[in-house]
Design a protein around this nucleic acid. Structure first.
Length: 735
RNA sequence: GCCACCGUAGCUCAGUGGUAGAGCACUCCCUUGGUAAGGGAGAGGUCAUGGGUUCAAGUCCCAUUGGUGGCUCCA
């Protein structure tokens, strides 16, 4: 006889097994009506689940008491909507479409499916699919669960001929897949599952089994299709079965669902808002940057306007760094391959670097010597003499004639575009002796680095192949680590605050205790990790510890910032490095008059100027605060008759360092206002004969429908100068 | 890198095998107008690039290149 413990601690006893629905009813009819499912001992289940023993239970509804959408409720709705979408697609496209895998996601759900030759899913069919989904939801059919055990379930799926479902079932039963031979698995093999060829498989019908559409599914689902509320298909993408590119190509159909149409509409509106903020669109519209295919993918050309934003931001960060005792350095964009062999970047990370730059003469000599491409590759990379000699590692067969084997010292020398600034900075540190009294040495550089990102990953300013890091390396003693990490975090705090990015969090990447891939002593690690955690705590924002996320050379802190519409962006990191001192044989003289290894902290808290500017463009939707605006003031004469006064105003502003321009176009002031508003200029100064007479300006502030009235030009100038100096994030002129 | 879709004027986009289009921007003319687009005229194109099919290609096919959305990756 089950006794059920509810979330508030109260208990209810029943004299016979009860369903979740019964429990909800026993609490209240309203709750029973709102119930979508239950959570039994923390596990999400169907509302119809029968309970015959003592459990703790909570009823899952669409919303919590504060009317906020409930995470579990949404999960049930979206998981169920995936089934409805799958049925709709099979109705619209055809039963030949084979379903593979359809889970809910953070923003909706998707269903991966195999579309056979001759059939096609395209966005043209979205209307038809949405219509069919709406019908199924309206029919309010019950989600009916049934189970088949003893291997019959698996046989049923085999008979139906959908290998993806057979694979899912075999995995659910803990059996090795008889159909999937790939190396990688998208499904977690938790290892705890015992293989059981007779295990029960569960199926869900969108209605009556045997009569309506059904699918192998672990569940759980909402009680009936009507409880989904509103669901649509949103987009198409492709994916691979088990994420394995050697495996079948599947079509991933994305959709989303909400309890009500109003919430779905709101979601769509938000998405539209987000796409309006797209930095690539705004960047083009406001002429901030340009990417040119002749220059190359992922390489940013900063136009004059965008350069101002970037430069202002850089000046701001730079000024804060000086306050913290950083010293600025400049280093070249390339370095010898030897350097990167020392640092370990080459050839270990060669897949994400631009190919080496080899002298023309050296190439010619190799070419004349009849060196094959493969040999050149080996020599450039300085691989072992054995490999250079062309011995196939597996077969031990000689692939290059012995007389063409070159000794290691003849390997080709070359240069590389720097993928990181640290090797250069390490060399600067190493170029002069250091006493513990000089430590820490903080070398900062807005250093441009180049990485070979995969072409499919490139995206506007946020994922590029050449970018400028707000980089610095802090060479310090072990004792100095906590203080230096604190300093990095306080810098981040200052800058985020000024930009109005109050909502951010940090992730502390710790080592995985089981692994031996890390360098440095356990004792050092403990200290450094403690320092990272303490620093994160003192920051006063939410942080998470992520074991196993550390770099092999030390723990790290990542910054994730939320913009005004709630999207998260990963920016920069702070990483403790015990390895670099060894690689570059760096040292300082301690109080004991002996040489010690410095620890290095890599820090690029904003990641790159490119990405950070991209995030800021979206954060501000192009409407930058005055201090960052490419154009701070536009002067709009009413007509040509006040052009001269307009010029005078423009000059007065420029003399005080304000970025001002004059609209000399032969247009009515209405048109000039429209254009300036489109370009998100913070201030418009409308000047006509009345203003000219009084040496005044009529001020119009971005985002405000009416002007603030006329004020003396000198007052406006003083006000805006102080606004710019204080970097105030809020626009407005004091009355 | 892989898959799907896409590339037409500076920008946003129409154009389903038969003479290359619109709006905005640009140039010139008229207009001198006090708060979110006054009026007119003009100029602007190797329809991403290269092949192919066809009497005929912006349109169909192939390759290349770039973009978008995903997948995979991100020291």
């Amino acid at each position: 006889m089950p006794t059920i413990t509810l979330p508030d601690g109260s208990k209810k006893s029943f004299d016979k097994p009860v369903s979740g629905k019964d429990v909800a009813l026993s609490i209240g009819p309203g709750l029973a009506k709102a119930a979508l499912g239950v959570k039994i001992n923390g596990e999400l289940k169907d509302l119809s689940t029968v309970i015959d023993h003592d459990v703790s239970l909570s009823i899952v509804t669409e919303r919590d008491r504060q009317k906020v959408l409930d995470k579990d409720g949404l999960f049930l709705i979206r998981h169920s909507a995936a089934h409805v979408m799958a049925e709709a697609i099979q109705d619209v496209i055809g039963k030949e479409v084979q379903l593979a895998y359809g889970p809910p996601t953070d923003t909706g759900f998707f269903y991966d499916m195999f579309v056979p030759e001759g059939k096609k899913i395209s966005s043209d069919q979205f209307d038809a699919i949405n219509k069919r989904m709406a019908e199924i939801i309206k029919e309010n059919r019950e989600f009916t669960r049934y189970e088949i055990g003893g291997g019959d379930g698996l046989q049923k799926l085999k008979d139906e001929g959908n290998k993806y479902k057979v694979d899912n079932a075999e995995r659910a039963m803990g059996l090795p897949s008889s159909v999937y031979k790939g190396a990688k698995s998208a499904f977690a093999d938790d290892g705890s599952k015992k293989a059981d060829a007779n295990a029960k498989l569960s199926f869900y019908a969108n209605g009556t089994p045997g009569k309506n559409w059904e699918d192998l599914c672990r569940g759980p689902h909402v009680p009936s299709t009507g409880r989904i509320g509103a669901a649509i298909v949103t987009s198409l993408a492709s994916s691979y079965w088990h994420g394995d590119e050697n495996s079948d190509r599947l079509i991933r159909v994305y959709g989303t669902a909400f309890p009500t149409q109003a919430e779905l509409d709101e979601y769509l509106k938000q998405k539209e808002e987000a796409s309006k903020r797209d930095h690539r669109v705004i960047g083009k519209h406001l002429r901030l940057f340009h990417i040119d295919e002749d220059v190359g993918q992922g390489l940013i050309l900063w136009t004059p306007r965008g350069s101002i934003v970037r430069k202002e931001l850089q000046n701001f960060i730079s000024a804060e760094l000086k306050k913290q005792g950083y010293t600025e350095v400049f280093t070249p964009h390339i370095g010898r391959l030897e350097l990167y062999k020392t640092s370990g970047h080459f050839p270990y990370y060669k897949d994400s670097q631009f190919a080496p730059i080899v002298e023309r003469q050296a190439l010619e000599e190799l070419s004349k010597a009849g060196c094959s491409c493969a040999e050149m590759m080996n020599r450039v990379e300085g691989v072992s003499a054995r490999l250079a000699a062309g011995i196939n590692e597996r077969t031990k067969a000689q692939t290059i004639a012995p007389d063409r084997i070159m000794a290691d010292d003849k390997l080709v020398e070359g240069f590389m575009l720097k993928p990181m600034n640290c090797p250069h900075h390490a060399k600067i540190f190493g170029s002069s002796p250091h006493s513990y009294r000089d430590m820490p040495v903080r070398l900062a550089e807005f250093g441009t680095v180049y990485r070979w990102e995969q072409s499919g990953e490139l995206n506007g300013l946020t994922r590029v192949r050449g970018f400028t890091q707000d980089d610095a390396h802090l060479f310090c003693t072990e004792e100095q680590i906590p203080g230096e990490i604190q300093g990095c975090l306080s810098l981040v705090k200052t800058i985020f605050n000024v930009l109005g990015m109050k909502d951010y969090r940090v992730r502390v990447g710790l080592r995985d205790p089981d692994s031996s891939k890390y360098t440095g002593s356990a004792e050092s690690w403990d200290k450094a990790e403690a320092a990272c955690i303490a620093a994160a705590q003192s920051l006063g924002v939410s942080f998470s510890k992520e074991p196993g996320e550390a770099a092999f050379y030390g723990p790290k802190i990542d910054f994730v910032v939320k913009d005004v519409i709630g999207r998260e962006w990963q920016l920069g990191t702070v990483q403790v490095d015990y390895q670099m001192g060894n690689r570059f044989d760096l040292s300082y003289i301690g109080p004991d008059n002996k040489a010690h290894r410095p620890v290095v902290i890599h820090r690029a808290p904003f990641g790159s100027m490119e990405r950070f500017c991209g995030v800021l463009i979206e954060h501000f939707a192009g409407a930058f605060p005055t201090w960052l605006s490419p154009e701070q003031v536009r002067v709009l004469p009413i007509s040509d008759k006040t052009l001269d006064y307009g010029r005078e105003v423009e000059r007065s502003l420029r003399e005080r360092g304000i970025r001002a321009t004059l609209d000399e176009s032969n247009e009515r002031v209405q048109a000039k206002i429209k254009v300036a508003a489109d370009e998100k200029i913070p201030y418009m100064l409308i000047v006509g004969p009345r203003d000219a007479e009084n040496k005044a300006v009529s001020v119009r502030v971005r985002g405000v429908e009416k002007d603030l009235g006329a004020m003396p030009l000198t007052k406006f100038v003083d006000d805006i100068v102080s606004e710019i100096e204080s970097k105030s994030a809020v626009l407005g002129v004091k009355p």
